[in-house]
């Protein structure tokens, strides 16, 4: 199997999808250039009628994608950073998310919005957020957060087949991550998580880059004799609650590591779901590792403090192992 970066996997998958379906049309800013390499040069391959470099007008081009999806095309939109959803939030919150429902399910909205998330590269407060938790609160949106090249490819295929809108969140810090990708593999169904590493003592749930950070922590903890199980839900809405519950039944302990909001975000949702449904098997209170409730800072040391890291996870797991309920 070929080894690819996430960026290359997304690009190869887009090409494959576009070759197989003439209705797929890309919309977004600077697609020809391709800020992260995913769409670079695709306009030359497919023509500028299918790869459309738009003005910097997120409201207009997200709305255009919705209207095109309602009338026969399958648009894949790129919103360069999820922070930019602030300027077109009505089209996401009220239009993309609701139209299928308001039609009584009669009208399909085959729309994908690709966007980026993630801090750690000095991009500052308005090009670094991870808004997946905010977006998962909106009924009508499917939210995918792939962490590997193979998952990026498989989930993008599924997104392109969806008849309701999908927000596809690509982590800036993972574009260069490599892995095996079989472009012939079938699409990965939404709502089906993956056990990244099996373990017996603690369950860590994390998506996107935080899944990799958690895996590093698990390797450190293995030398202490602590066995960590790591779950990657892959899509956070729908969320594979079964794979999480199964793991908790085994370990009795939960930590959620997330780069999104510390309050009412993805981590809180997972914890509330586990407390609600698996309380009887929990050995102690679940923990959340998330950034402080501030905007993302700019300076290198501040950004490093802000982001969850391996040491924080290792300490939290050790502490958790010492504090079981009687």
């Amino acid at each position: 199997m070929p080894i690819m970066t996430i960026s290359e996997a997304l690009r190869s998958t887009l090409i494959q999808l576009m070759q197989n379906d003439d209705h797929i049309t890309l919309l977004g800013e600077d697609l020809s250039m391709g800020v992260f390499g995913v769409t670079s040069g695709l306009d030359r391959e497919f023509g500028n009628d299918r790869v459309i470099n738009t003005p910097i007008s997120e409201t207009a081009f997200v709305g255009m994608g919705i209207g095109a999806a309602m009338t026969g095309l399958k648009p894949i939109i790129e919103v360069m950073f999820c922070d930019f959803m602030g300027v077109c939030f009505d089209q996401i919150l009220n239009q993309a998310a609701k139209t299928h429902f308001l039609s009584g399910g009669n009208i399909d909205i085959p729309l994908v919005i690709r966007t980026t998330m993630g801090a750690g590269d000095g991009s500052g407060a308005m090009h670094s957020q991870s808004l997946h938790g905010l977006l998962m609160q909106i009924p009508g949106l499917i939210i995918a957060c792939p962490a590997t090249p193979a998952d990026a490819s498989g989930l993008l295929k599924t997104a392109a087949q969806s008849n309701t809108p999908v927000i596809f969140m690509e982590h800036k810090g993972l574009y260069a991550m490599t892995g095996e990708v079989d472009l012939e593999i079938p699409p990965i169904p939404f709502g089906k998580g993956r056990v990244v590493k099996e373990g017996a003592d603690v369950t860590i749930v994390a998506v996107s880059k935080m899944n990799h950070v958690s895996l590093e922590a698990a390797q450190v903890l293995a030398s202490d004799g602590i066995s960590v199980e790591i779950i990657d839900p892959r899509t956070i809405s729908p969320l594979d609650t079964r794979i999480i519950a199964d793991s908790i039944r085994k370990t009795g302990r939960l930590i959620v590591v997330d780069e999104g909001a510390a309050i009412a975000g993805f981590a809180d949702h997972v914890i509330s779901n586990v407390v609600e449904n698996s309380f009887d098997v929990l050995r102690n209170a679940p923990r959340k590792i998330a950034p402080p409730h501030t905007p993302i800072p700019y300076g290198r040391s501040a950004e490093a403090v802000w982001l969850p890291n391996t040491n924080i996870i290792v300490d939290a797991v050790r502490d958790l192992m010492r504090s079981d309920n009687e």
Binding site: T25, D49, R50, T59, A60, F61, V62, G63, M64, G65, I66, G67, A68, A69, M70, T71, G72, L73, P75, D90, Q91, N94, Q95, T99
Partner: peptide
């Protein structure tokens, strides 16, 4: 008639998409 809208002006970008579909098709 494709759709009406509860948000003032939001139907205008959506019509761009119908125009794009017409041009592409």
């Amino acid at each position: 008639f494709l759709s009406s809208n509860g948000i003032v002006g939001a139907q205008v970008p959506i019509a761009l998409g119908a125009a794009l579909s017409a041009r592409r098709l």
